[in-house]
Amino acid sequence: MEKAADARGAPIHSKKRENGLVRTVKAYGRQYQLVLMFLPAVITIALFSYAPMYGLTIAFKDYALLEGIHGSPWVGLENFRKLLTAPSFAEVFRNTVTISFLRILFGFPAPVLLALLLNEVGNVRFKKMVQTISYLPHFLSWVVLAGILIQILSPSSGLVNQIIVMFGGTPIYFVADPRYFVPMLIVTGIWKEVGWGTIVYLAAITSISPELYEAATIDGAGRFQKMLHITLPAIRPVVSIMFILNSGNLINAGFDQIYNLYNPAVYKVADILDTYVYRRGLIDMKYSFSAAAGLFKNVISFALVLTTNGLVKAISGKENGIW
């Protein structure tokens, strides 16, 4: 910046600036092989990640199909005013935060608990088998899992309701009853990822010194006590980092899962920012309005990630931050 200003104001400096430019070009030229290897990445990232950011301007415009992104008239914050005063948006925002908060509340401790239980299994074969089975849902898409869940939870032909009826209950329409939909989301969300989530904790557990357990045994500690007083404190740093990183997702309530499971009967409780943007934007084609909603979400998400990353660095040292 400063250099450019100098160059415009004082021609004496222009030679110096040119030298700098030439030097830069030469530096890239010398490394032409590395530059060529880096090129495909730069081009695709510029084209598909950075270029669309320019399109964010339509959040401040009234997008008209014929005028395009560039030619549409500016409207200032009008889209945001409409967004924030829309009753549907308040509901969607509340749903987003509620669902992701519940996910953290119930979903976060689940893999820690499972890792502790797995660690207590003496039989290696059994442990391996449980792990392999628990990874299964992680490898399938929410399209497949939603397909399975809709069948399993169906009030007439679903296994879960057959079991409920067998024990004298009445069938519950899990995917269409607003009272049950969110709990169902939370439980099935845990069901999909809990096994996979244990990996990072089990890795931390293996690095605990066996001498600690030995000493505790001599002191007469039971297994539950050892779990509580040795294993759990030992993995606490990992747990706190994972917790902070998880809180960075507070605004991401899980588009894939909800999109494949929800229906108009439960929009009231299940419609989140991402599904709202998708329907308003790509189905109703209100481009500017939904771009504003999307930007609103991205800014919050960005702030959350910065905050959480800062927290991780502060707690556990610089090297553990994402950058």
């Binding site: 730069v42 990640s49 964010l56 934007g281 481009y287 930007l295």
Partner: peptide, 28 residues
């Protein structure tokens, strides 16, 4: 030896944290 390595690393990593979002990307 890669020129401006720090800048290019940031160029890549920044995409993890911020994006144009669904609608601008679709229109683009």
């Amino acid at each position: 030896s890669f020129p401006n390595r720090k800048f290019w690393s940031f160029f890549v990593v920044f995409t993890m944290f911020f994006s144009g979002g669904l609608i601008p990307t679709y229109l683009w």
